[in-house]
Computed example of a mutant assay.
Amino acid sequence: MKHDTNQEAPLVREVFPDLVDELAALLEAEGERELAICVRDVRLVGPCGCGDDFCQSIRTVDRPRGRPFGPGHRCVPLLPSSGDLILDVVDGRIMYIEILGRPPLRRHGQPEQGR
């Protein structure tokens, strides 16, 4: 029986609710209604892992690193008020949330800093 680590990973909305709210609103604004609904159920499988200080990207599925997404892949660039938010989507499933050049993400329950 295959072990599915995706089901054990926390939902992104539970860890970074503000991010998911922003993504849902931006997706709605871009006419991506299905993805706006789906983004509420993506899991935080892990960080990007690149080590760049400007990157806070999130892996939402467990897949081999460095391999292309393959057929059915598309990038969905969004227009946030700061930095870059880009989704990698395969056949309607959000595979990766690219978060670049943005203020540090606030975890649920973490107080705001510097305001």
Rank of each mutant, 00 (worst) to 15 (best):
K2H: 13
H3M: 02
D4A: 12
D4M: 11
N6P: 02
Q7K: 08
E8V: 11
E8L: 12
P10L: 01
P10H: 04
P10W: 07
L11V: 02
L11A: 06
L11R: 06
V12T: 05
R13F: 01
R13L: 06
V15C: 05
V15A: 04
V15E: 03
F16I: 03
D18F: 08
D18T: 07
L19C: 08
L19W: 02
V20Q: 05
D21Y: 10
D21P: 10
E22W: 05
A24H: 01
A24S: 06
L26G: 01
L26V: 04
L27Q: 00
E28A: 12
E28F: 07
A29R: 06
E30Y: 05
E30I: 06
E30N: 09
E30F: 03
G31R: 00
E32N: 03
E32C: 04
E32L: 04
E32S: 03
R33I: 09
E34S: 03
L35V: 03
L35I: 02
L35F: 01
L35S: 00
A36L: 04
A36S: 05
I37R: 10
I37Q: 06
C38N: 07
R40V: 13
R40L: 12
D41I: 05
V42D: 09
R43H: 09
L44K: 03
V45C: 12
V45G: 07
G46Q: 07
G46Y: 09
P47C: 10
C48W: 04
C48M: 10
G49W: 07
C50K: 13
G51V: 03
D53L: 09
D53W: 11
F54M: 12
C55M: 14
C55L: 14
S57Q: 00
S57I: 01
I58M: 05
R59M: 11
R59C: 12
R59I: 14
V61F: 02
D62S: 15
D62M: 14
P64D: 07
R65Q: 13
G66A: 13
G66Q: 10
R67M: 11
R67T: 14
R67Y: 12
G70C: 04
P71D: 14
P71C: 14
P71V: 15
P71H: 14
G72R: 07
G72Q: 04
H73I: 14
H73K: 09
P77N: 08
L78V: 00
L78T: 00
L78F: 02
P80D: 06
P80I: 04
S81L: 13
S82R: 09
G83E: 06
D84T: 15
I86W: 13
L87K: 02
L87S: 00
D88P: 00
V89F: 03
I94S: 04
I94R: 02
M95W: 01
M95H: 01
M95E: 06
I97T: 08
I97D: 06
E98P: 08
I99T: 01
I99M: 00
L100I: 04
G101Y: 14
G101Q: 14
R102A: 02
P103G: 02
P103E: 08
P103L: 08
P104K: 15
P104Q: 14
P104R: 15
L105P: 12
R107P: 13
R107C: 05
H108Y: 13
G109R: 00
E112F: 14
Q113F: 10
Q113K: 12
G114F: 08
R115V: 12
R115T: 10
